[in-house]
């Protein structure tokens, strides 16, 4: 086999390998949704965050507008403190917007749903969302149900 065919085949092999890597990066990984990390950070306190995790989605009306960036426990208020990064193009949420922890599907992952309020002022970087609703915990719901049954 002469040098030209040899080098041609090796070149094709390397190109195929790189193309495979590129295809995997573009079509099956989350490369397309990168770049949302430069958003502005807002915070919210929750009594119970359930199964919420760092990098869980934040959405409004079902559209993903940001991600949870940090979860910590506030040992003075005895509440969970969740920081989320919101895409800068969505910068017109009123300051009385509310945040609730919802579940996608019956057993799906948990996410934060933002519900816009009615105030004139907008949420900016570092703002705190005051109106929050915690995650539903199955044991608590069953407990309440049994309690109300017992009352009847």
């Amino acid at each position: 086999m002469n040098t030209r065919t040899l080098e041609l085949l090796v070149g094709l092999f390397v190109a195929a390998g790189l193309a495979a890597l590129f295809m995997l990066a573009m079509s099956v990984s989350n490369l397309a949704s990168f770049g949302g990390d430069e958003g502005y950070i807002i915070k919210a306190r929750f009594d119970n965050i359930g199964g919420l995790k760092v990098r869980s989605p934040v959405s409004a009306s079902g559209v993903r507008i940001g991600r949870v960036t940090d979860i910590s426990y506030d040992s003075e208020g005895f509440e969970a403190l969740v920081s989320m990064s919101i895409d800068p193009q969505y910068n017109t949420f009123p300051i009385d917007s509310s945040a609730s922890i919802l579940t996608s599907g019956l057993l799906g992952e948990q996410y934060i749903g933002l519900e816009p309020g009615a105030e004139e002022e907008y949420l900016v970087a570092g703002s705190m969302i005051d109106i929050t609703q915690s995650a539903l915990v199955l044991e608590q719901i069953i407990g309440q149900f049994l309690y109300s049954k017992a009352d009847e």
Binding site: F13, V14, A16, G17, L18, A19, A20, L21, M23, L24
Partner: peptide, 15 residues
């Protein structure tokens, strides 16, 4: 050099 390229091709074809 070959192994990572072959593994990438394997995964891409597998997908």
């Amino acid at each position: 050099i070959s192994m990572p390229l072959l593994a990438a091709i394997f995964s891409a074809v597998g997908v």
